[in-house]
Each structure stands twice: as structure tokens, then as C-alpha cells.
């Protein structure tokens, strides 16, 4: 069974990777690669705003590649959440909003969490896998 979601990243406002989880993409990426991809995405996101033909551009929201879709959500504080999914996967925006809520609840409200540092919060991990699992079940149901 192919996973609808391949991987999930959170990058802080300066482009550093603070959370990465893989859900079954082929060929594991090592830590260095994921860090580099995250900061590359951060700069691509910034450049896309420069190239906008009209004012008020807030960066790439959806990238459609040959073998995956990448949905990105940027919070008002500049933290970016992005999910790599199968091409044409639906309701990824709402999933990202749900994950953002989990982040505010279980990461930002965690008194031991230092801002802009890698996320190591057990409750966040648990709830995130539940949210992704739920999304997968919803996909199977259709």
C-alpha cells in the first residue's frame, strides 16, 4: 500500500530544519540531505515572492512535481510546514492547519521547548502520527 504522505518537514524562520519525519519514501535521506533540502526550500520560497507579478505574494503554496506534490503552509511568524504527498492528494491544506494547531498546542506550550530549536516533544510526535494516520484512513475509505 503506497502511502499518501511521503514525508513532513517543519523549518524555522531562518530556514533551519527543526522537525522531519519520513512516512515511507524510497531511498532514505540522511540528516545532511534533509537539512539541505529544508534550507533550499526556504530560499526557493523567498525567491518566488520576489518574482511575483503583483504585490502581496506570500510564497509557494503548492509545488507539483512529476512524482509528488508538495504543499507548504507558512505561519504568521515565518515557520514553514510542508508535506510531500502523492500527486493529486486532496485536503492537504487542512491537514497542515491541523498540524499547525498540534504544533502550537504541544510544542509552543511546552515549557521546555526553546524557540527555533529542533522539536523533541513526545506529545507532538504522538498526535502528529495520529493526524497522519487519520488522513490515511480517510483516504482508504474513499
Amino acid at each position: 500500500m503506497a502511502a499518501a504522505i511521503f514525508s513532513f518537514f517543519i523549518i524555522n524562520k531562518s530556514g533551519g530544519l527543526i522537525f522531519y519525519k519520513d512516512y515511507g519514501s524510497a531511498g532514505r535521506m540522511d540528516t545532511n540531505d534533509s537539512l539541505r533540502l529544508a534550507s533550499l526550500w526556504h530560499s526557493m520560497h523567498a525567491i518566488s515572492q520576489q518574482l511575483s507579478p503583483t504585490v502581496g505574494c506570500s510564497g509557494i503554496e503548492l509545488l507539483e512535481a512529476d512524482s509528488f506534490d508538495l504543499h507548504c503552509f507558512q505561519s504568521l511568524t515565518g515557520t514553514k510546514f510542508f508535506v510531500v504527498s502523492e500527486p493529486g492528494a486532496q485536503h492537504m491544506e487542512s491537514l497542515l492547519k491541523v498540524i499547525y494547531e498540534l504544533y502550537t498546542d504541544y510544542v509552543l506550550k511546552n515549557p521546555f521547548y526553546e524557540m527555533e530549536m529542533p522539536v523533541r516533544c513526545e506529545l507532538f510526535d504522538i498526535n502528529l502520527s495520529q493526524a497522519i494516520q487519520k488522513d490515511r484512513v480517510a483516504l482508504l475509505g474513499r
Binding site: S52, S58, I60
Partner: peptide, 14 residues
């Protein structure tokens, strides 16, 4: 390698 065919922002699509 894997390429891409489009991306979308809130103000434009490429």
C-alpha cells in the same frame, strides 16, 4: 531525474 511542471502561490501560478 524528477522534474516539476508547476507551482502556485497566492498571487500567481508558474
Amino acid at each position: 531525474g524528477c522534474s516539476f511542471h508547476s507551482f502556485k502561490t497566492n498571487t500567481y501560478k508558474l
